[in-house]
């Protein structure tokens, strides 16, 4: 019961939705929509589990006075504070305080974290440029050529630009195709393993 019913559900929904792709009729389309709704609606209910997990982890940390427990207080207070500001009588998603918090806390931090990528790409480039093998030298040369495209290199600018564009258009396309064909096969194989019950570790054991 604990193992068999979930496996049957996986098989039934897996097979039905795989077949549905080939069947354009109205009942088939409605079934597809219900399945997509199902994924969304279950996601909403799962949010309760997510919030519960956050509270549980935070509360345990605070209760045990674990290292850095004070920051769990900040997280929980800001979470409930933000959710409270999003309530109906506070104006919902368009409430003034909700928008202020979003625009003046969320957005600046988001932009700052995103901009960290500039520093990280610099340090990653530094590491990439210490080519350790022939293969990484190939990567380095390709990366350098593309970077040189934005530098004023006088008479070399045109050829560098053309080689860079060609690399983005041609070898890039070939490699992407090879990867995508592999990904297509791999995802079908994974889906098949799930539907046939060959992979079942996600369904628990007891």
């Amino acid at each position: 019961m604990k193992q068999q019913i979930p496996l049957v559900l996986v098989f039934v929904f897996g097979v039905l939705l795989a077949i549905q792709y080939f069947v354009p009729s109205e009942p088939s389309q409605r079934f597809y929509e219900v399945a997509l709704d199902g994924l969304t609606v279950i996601g909403i209910f799962a949010m309760v589990l997510g919030i519960w997990s956050q509270i549980h982890v935070g509360y345990n940390k605070i209760k045990r006075r674990a290292e850095d427990w004070q920051y769990s207080v900040v997280t929980l207070v800001s979470m409930f504070g933000m959710a409270f500001c999003g309530l109906s009588f506070m104006g919902g998603l368009n409430g003034p305080i909700f928008r202020q918090l979003y625009n003046n806390i969320f957005i600046p931090i988001q932009a700052a974290i995103f901009s960290l990528l500039a520093f990280y790409i610099a340090s990653a480039s530094y590491r990439a440029f210490r080519a350790r093998s022939a293969v990484s030298t190939v990567l380095l040369v390709a990366a350098l050529l593309l970077m040189l495209r934005v530098i004023p290199t006088g008479p070399l600018a045109d050829p560098i630009n053309q080689i860079g564009s060609w690399m983005l258009m041609v070898p890039n396309m070939a490699a992407k195709r090879a990867i995508l064909i592999g990904v297509g096969l791999g995802s079908v194989a994974t889906a098949l393993k799930i539907v046939l019950g060959i992979e079942r570790s996600y369904l628990g054991k007891d």
């Binding site: 019913i5 996986v10 897996g14």
Partner: peptide, 16 residues
């Protein structure tokens, strides 16, 4: 797990 089975089964079926 029934709900998880629905999610996993549906995702696998869609991706197949």
């Amino acid at each position: 797990r029934w709900s998880l089975a629905f999610i996993i089964g549906a995702t696998a079926g869609l991706n197949l």
